Simulated scan of single mutants.
Amino acid sequence: MRSPGAVARRVVALYEGDARRPVRGYAVVLGSYAGLVSTLALVARSSGVRLPERVELADVALMGVATHKASRLLTKDAVTSPLRAPVARFEEETGLGEVNESPRGHGVRHAAGELATCPFCLAIWVATGLTAGLVFAPRLTRLVAGMLSAVAASDTLQIGYDAARQWVRK
């Protein structure tokens, strides 16, 4: 009978084929996320915090826009590049204060680099944080989500304004 480690290595090898994917690193990232969610649930339960019966549509919209802005800010903004530097490599400026970066390293570092440079990948973490915030500190969370949503609206207006100016010049 094969050891669990041998079985895991075989599964990873069969999954990867000729590609080199950081499957073990992804497992660590997934385990970290599961640990975070489990910890939040235990803290909520032990502190007697009651979950809302339903999530209001206004909160979903607010959190959706805030999640979008926060995940882009954390994964693409030039100013937040020091946060990504340990796991990412600068590739190029893309304009509008954003940069493209690629994950570096192998294993967990590479998986963390993918998470740190991908707004789609990081969005679930951000949304989880905002959701936890609605449970533990709803007023503060709505304030922060409102601020992030205002920045997203401002970004949209800035881009629209620049596009309109370019169109008028033609």
Rank of each mutant, 00 (worst) to 15 (best):
S3T: 15
G5W: 04
A6S: 01
R10T: 04
V11K: 11
V11G: 06
A13T: 06
A19C: 13
R20K: 09
R20D: 07
R20T: 09
V23E: 10
V23A: 11
R24M: 12
G25K: 00
V28K: 08
G31E: 09
G31F: 10
A34C: 00
L40S: 14
A41V: 12
A44P: 02
S46M: 15
V49Y: 14
E53Q: 13
R54Y: 14
A58H: 14
D59A: 04
G64F: 11
V65T: 04
S71A: 15
L74E: 05
L74M: 09
A78E: 15
T80E: 07
R84E: 08
A85N: 05
E92L: 12
V99Q: 04
P103I: 00
R104I: 13
R104P: 03
G105V: 04
R109L: 10
A111L: 01
A111Q: 05
G113V: 02
G113H: 00
G113Q: 00
T117F: 01
C118D: 15
I124P: 02
W125Y: 06
V126F: 05
T128H: 08
L130V: 02
A132Y: 01
P138F: 05
R139P: 00
L140D: 08
L140C: 08
V144K: 05
A145S: 06
V151G: 00
A152G: 03
G160S: 10
Q166S: 10
